[in-house]
Design a protein around this nucleic acid. Structure first.
Length: 571
RNA sequence: GCGGCCGUAGUCUAGCCUGGUUAGGACCUCGGCUUCCCGAGCCGAUGACCCGGGUCCGAAUCCCGGCGGCCGCACCA
């Protein structure tokens, strides 16, 4: 259906196809765009969130800082005999009793050594395991003609926001909280994509990164959603093997500690409502908390929003991660650019301040070429800690170097502070708009009297109205074309169709989810009125052509119901 | 990546086992006729053997390889 009517299909079919890539057709592309617009209505506009657009290819440095280079990688080991593949780290955890924190640090050679040392065989057939290999799930490329300028296709749009934090913060005139969003393509080289449009290698991601002060995690907006109930499958229950979800209001979920950040709960509630707008009833939705090892490296708490589909079961449509200050901190460290926010105290505060100043002549003569490193270390070290260490041990140890009190000058002073710098925390709801389009389609798909009906929410429909002459003679087609042009000029997405019988044309329109059918009949020639037919009820009303543009506009903005569009027609 | 099943117009399919004329049908789509409100009817048209190699006088059909799909395993930030 999706293919025949032009919603989406597998890409590169003429060359045999390539799994993990889909093309959105004429109707699908519009549907997707409308869903993204709906997202803007729902999340962006009310909160004044900043929408930006950054590039898909990003330099290696970004992913070094973000941690993706280390984490978006899987070491796999294959069995020589049965050729099955396993995650090398999982094997070691299971058969050598190693912890994930230990296996994480091992390189390929070390993984191999550990496997040999522990004499691990293939868990399936008992055969020997081969050499571990790494599989990078980011797409890599060379930037320009220099092969050492490595770039990666972004696996998430969020990094494009974090690297621009400073400018965005300035644009927001230094006020928190604020959020930034990006709707754009992201690439992930999935090992084995399945499930058609649900799991692809090139997809549109919507990353909304919301920055807030961790000391002021509350916000009045929460009030709007605190009674919304959420269906939560908690990690603690998953660990116990329980698949029962709990029903809790946003307020309760926060009070009971199910959700750690208020803003996260707020976005979860909004996401639930958003799905309902796309046609998914609440009982087909749930949020499932990620276990520690299932979470992304940057996340301290993550919930996946899942939608139940008859075809694929529970499918993830959005991820809600509490990223804390992880990303900004990392980019600060790697770029040496300050990404803190500043907040003024209500009253200036007095504070004892301890500072360490390196005494350069001494440090230089003691540490020689190591001296610059020492100075750098001191600038980020905690002065109190250094002072205490001097007090207890008479020196401060950093790596293999011993720092003596002579090397530094410690001063104490009382300073008056107007405010302080801090690294904002981030809560991130993230959606895949391809999946949203698929879900809207599946939930709209119905059959009625053996006919297919795509009951899309009216504001999502790619074609808003069909214009049909009742029969193709006596000047009706000409009149219908006139009406079509008039509506098209009024900014309404209309389609003209005169092929086949009127019933057939209604059926075709129903199948692509066109909400309204406008029919030109013999009465039209008399009094310039037309009938409007409702896709879902097949009811008809009659109204004047001149009023159509404003009536339809109101109808699509939900300011008017179908019955208000004209006088009912007896059939 | 592995194993099982599978691959004929946009869709569903006949033919394959047992090689042999223009690969048949239905739906969809398009054109014409007809038609005063829900896939009606009649006439006509477009459109397919997944790709490559092999066997053979001859391959949709038999053999090998590849690609793709579905299911299971694995992966899923």
């Amino acid at each position: 259906m999706a293919k025949r009517r032009g919603f989406f299909w597998p890409s590169y079919e003429i060359y045999g196809g390539l799994s993990g890539f889909v093309t959105f057709g004429p109707l699908g592309a519009v549907l997707k765009r409308r869903i993204e617009d709906k997202f803007r209505d729902f999340f962006i506009r009310p909160l004044g969130i900043l929408e930006i657009e950054s590039s898909v290819i990003m330099p290696e440095k970004v992913f070094e800082a973000s941690g993706h280079l280390d984490h978006f990688i899987e070491s796999m080991v294959g069995c020589v005999k049965c050729r099955r593949k396993f995650r090398a780290d999982h094997i070691l955890q299971e058969f050598a009793g190693m912890r994930d924190t230990e296996t994480e640090k091992l390189d390929l050679q070390e993984l191999m050594n550990e496997i040999e040392k522990n004499n691990i065989q293939c868990p399936e057939c008992g055969g020997d395991l081969g050499e571990p290999k790494q599989f990078m799930t980011m797409f890599s490329t060379a930037i320009g003609p220099y092969s050492d300028a490595i770039g990666y296709g972004r696996p998430e749009a969020a990094q494009g926001i974090f690297v621009e934090f400073k400018r965005l913060y300035e644009y927001a005139r230094g006020k928190l909280p604020f959020g930034a969003v990006q709707i754009g393509h992201a690439l992930r080289n999935e090992i084995s994509p399945r499930q058609g449009p649900i799991r692809v290698r090139d997809f549109t991601i919507i990353d909304l990164d919301f920055f807030f002060d961790p000391e002021e995690p509350s916000w009045p907006f929460l009030k709007e959603v605190e009674d919304e109930s959420l269906n939560l499958l908690l990690a603690e229950n998953k660990l116990k093997g329980l698949n029962e979800s709990v029903e809790a209001t946003v307020r309760d979920a926060l009070d009971k500690g199910y959700v750690k950040a208020e803003w996260q709960a707020y976005f979860m509630a909004l996401s639930k409502r958003f799905m309902m707008k796309l046609g998914v009833p609440e009982e087909k939705q749930r949020f499932i908390e990620k276990l520690e090892w299932e979470r992304a490296h940057y996340s301290v708490q993550g919930y996946d929003q899942e939608i139940h589909l008859d075809r694929w079961g529970w499918v993830e449509v959005s991820g809600h991660n509490y990223r804390t200050d992880y990303d900004l901190k990392q980019h600060m460290e790697f770029s040496d650019v300050d990404m803190t926010a500043f907040k003024e105290f209500e009253k200036p505060r007095k504070r004892e301040k301890t500072t360490i100043n390196p005494v350069m002549p001494k440090i230089g003569s003691t540490f020689k070429q190591e001296a610059p490193k020492i100075v750098k270390m001191l600038s980020s070290a905690d002065p109190k800690e250094v002072e205490e260490s001097f007090g207890k041990q008479g020196f401060y140890k950093w790596k293999s170097h011993k720092l003596l009190p002579d090397h530094v000058k410690i001063t104490h002073e009382t300073v008056e502070e107007e405010g302080k710098h801090y690294i904002p925390h981030v809560v991130e709801p993230s959606f895949g708009s391809d999946r949203l389009a698929y879900i809207a389609l599946e939930y709209a798909y119905k059959t009625k009297n053996d006919r297919t009906l795509l009951s899309l929410p009216r504001e999502l429909a790619p074609i808003q109205a069909g214009v049909f002459p009742l029969v193709t003679k006596d000047g009706l087609p000409e009149k219908a074309k006139e009406v079509h042009d008039r509506l098209a000029n009024a900014g309404i997405l209309v389609e003209y169709d005169e092929s086949g019988s009127i019933g057939r044309r209604y059926a075709r329109a129903d199948e692509v989810g066109t909400p309204l059918g406008i029919t030109i009949d013999y009465d039209t020639l008399e009094d310039d009125t037309v009938t409007i037919r409702d896709r879902d009820t097949w009811r008809q009303v009659r109204t004047e052509i001149s009023r159509l543009p404003s009536l339809l506009r109101a109808y699509f903005h939900h300011e008017m119901d179908f019955k208000d569009l004209g006088k009912p027609v007896e059939s």
